[in-house]
């Protein structure tokens, strides 16, 4: 019993130390951002760079504030732009997930399917998503479908590759055990293959979502009338540096939030993954 108490005390101490580590990391992060913003602000207030090249962070925040209710210069409020971009990414990423995840898993598990699909996939894989734009315009026009398709392609490839690799790396011992129990191949796929592929599959989704959100601006180059990418382009046309930087900042922040949300889901779904014994 005493030994148990000692163990618990040690575990408590370890937890406390970990929390201290995290707090330290957070503090360092805040300091770094603060220094970055200060330098940026100084560059502007001391007129080291001209206002036509860079505007100060305070001006950017003002621009975001004003843009929340103002439709100038691109015709939408900030929220409308965010929602419009969000919709594109969700459609593209959602489709990639619904098609790519099962495809990668099945390809990784069933060899004939792998051999059948792989040649096509290998040709498509190295194509940069931007290279799809001209053909997509010809086939799908310039509507939501076309733009979502570009996002779809950026997100599809990492999702397929990661779920494929994940399931291929399933420990043979787990498969053998399930076999000796008398499970069918399909049930082993479901009960052993899929869960063991999930850590890598999730890593793929995080990469995919980052890529997808990053390709947004390019996708919205395809003639839009709303969206964060569109807002940035309008900012450029009207020489509004503050709008451009505000757009970039919002894209960055939302990208960060999306990744964090996905990692939160990952932490819940993969709660069995404890890093240390």
């Amino acid at each position: 019993m005493e030994e148990r108490n000692k163990l618990e005390a040690a575990a408590g101490k370890l937890r406390f130390e970990r929390r201290r580590e995290r707090q330290k990391a957070l503090l360092l992060g805040i300091i770094s951002i603060f220094i970055f913003l200060t330098v940026w602000q100084m560059l502007c207030t001391l007129h080291i760079v001209g206002e036509n090249v860079l505007v100060s962070p305070i001006k950017v925040i003002q621009a975001i504030w004003i843009k929340a209710g103002d439709t100038r210069p691109d015709g939408n409020t900030l929220l409308q732009n965010i929602l419009s971009s969000f919709r594109l990414v969700l459609i593209g990423f959602g489709l990639a997930l619904v098609i790519g995840l099962p495809l990668g898993l099945l390809m990784g598990w069933y060899r004939p399917l792998d051999k059948f699909i792989r040649p096509i996939f290998e040709i498509i894989r190295p194509l940069p998503p931007i290279a799809w734009i001209p053909i997509v315009i010809v086939i799908l026009g310039i509507g939501t479908a076309a733009k979502s398709f570009i996002i779809f392609f950026t997100t599809f490839v990492p999702i397929v590759i990661n779920s494929y690799t994940g399931i291929r790396e399933t420990n043979q011992v787990y498969i053998n055990f399930a076999k000796t129990c008398g499970y069918s191949n399909w049930r082993i796929f479901r009960t052993v293959g899929i869960p063991s592929a999930m850590p890598l599959a999730f890593a793929g989704m995080v990469i995919a979502l980052g890529n997808g959100w990053g390709t947004l601006v390019a996708a919205e180059m395809l003639a839009s009338n709303s969206g964060l990418g569109y807002m940035i382009f309008m900012g450029r046309s009207y020489g509004r540096i503050d709008i451009i930087i505000a757009g970039m900042l919002v894209i960055g922040l939302i990208g960060l939030a999306l990744t964090a949300a996905l990692e939160l889901i990952e932490g819940y779904v993969l709660k069995w993954r404890i890093k240390e014994k």
């Binding site: 420990n171 011992v173 787990y174 055990f177 869960p195 999930m198 993969l270 069995w272 993954r273």
Partner: peptide, 9 residues
Amino acid sequence: FQEPSAFPW
């Protein structure tokens, strides 16, 4: 089996 084979998930 020789290797640990409890399903971690």
